[in-house]
């Protein structure tokens, strides 16, 4: 395939993914919203609407901005197919993003190329399927498995999955571009030491941190130092 054919093929493929993605997400929202009502029909009670609205507003105030930011930051990393899948299957930060980055590293694809989009989509899809299967097997084995996994002695391991992830990934990415990393890392450390309430707000912290890293990266790039 020459470059023009390739571009055309990929554009059609991408448009197809957008159509399919939109359709399945709309269907997904309807199905998901129907579940609580289906539960209600089975047991003969319906959700309490005033309580729902009150709760939903409280939740939306916190989580809607977070989801918009997550969308803006992660969509470019995941590409079209990867985004549609990641936003419905969840665990974007802790799983889908690192998984897609890891896959790109392995396949050595370049950002912005069709190959990269394909690798991201494949990786997010496989990740989502594996998660669903693991949880399915887990739910089936839940009764016999529960004593082992919830053994108090193992709790520190599972309480610290996310730190383990970011320790390993941090090393990889900080080593890749130490010039970009130094300032955001130092600032985030200082901020969390002097304003302890920020510690529990990592989803908000990543906005200034990511923005700062981007700005530093851009300046270094313009100066030809990357």
């Amino acid at each position: 395939m020459n470059i023009q054919d390739k571009d055309k093929f990929f554009e059609e493929f991408n448009n197809g993914l957008h159509r399919l993605g939109r359709f399945t997400l709309i269907a997904g929202i309807i199905i998901l919203m129907a579940v609580p009502f289906a539960f209600g029909v089975i047991v003969g009670v319906m959700p309490d609407m005033p309580a729902f609205l009150k709760g939903w507003i409280n939740v939306a105030v916190v989580y809607f901005p977070v989801s918009v930011v997550e969308f803006l930051v992660y969509a470019p990393m995941l590409g079209a197919g990867g985004s549609y899948l990641a936003f419905i299957t969840g665990n974007v930060t802790n799983m889908k993003i690192p998984c897609a980055m890891n896959a790109r590293d392995i396949a050595k694809t370049e950002v912005g190329t069709p190959e990269n989009e394909i690798v991201s989509t494949i990786s997010v899809a496989v990740s989502a399927i594996v998660t669903t299967l693991v949880i399915l097997i887990g739910v089936i084995m839940l009764v016999p498995l529960q004593p082992v996994l919830s053994a108090p002695v193992l709790q520190p391991a599972f309480n610290n999955v996310v730190p383990a992830l970011f320790g390993a990934l941090g090393l990889k990415y900080f080593a890749k571009s130490p010039q970009i990393a130094v300032i955001p890392l130092a600032l985030m450390c200082l901020l969390c030491i002097f304003v302890p309430s920020m510690i529990s707000q990592t989803s908000i912290l990543m906005i200034p941190s990511g923005g700062l890293a981007l700005a530093i990266g851009f300046i270094l790039f313009k100066k030809g130092k990357l």
Partner: peptide, 29 residues
């Protein structure tokens, strides 16, 4: 293009936010 570095930079920022929050947890409180 900057696109290549942008993703790395964003990810560096993400890791920095998490690692920063772990460092912050060392302080008593």
């Amino acid at each position: 293009s900057f696109g290549d570095h942008a993703t790395t930079a964003m990810f560096v920022g993400l890791c920095a936010a998490y690692i920063g929050s772990y460092v912050g947890r060392i302080a008593p409180g």
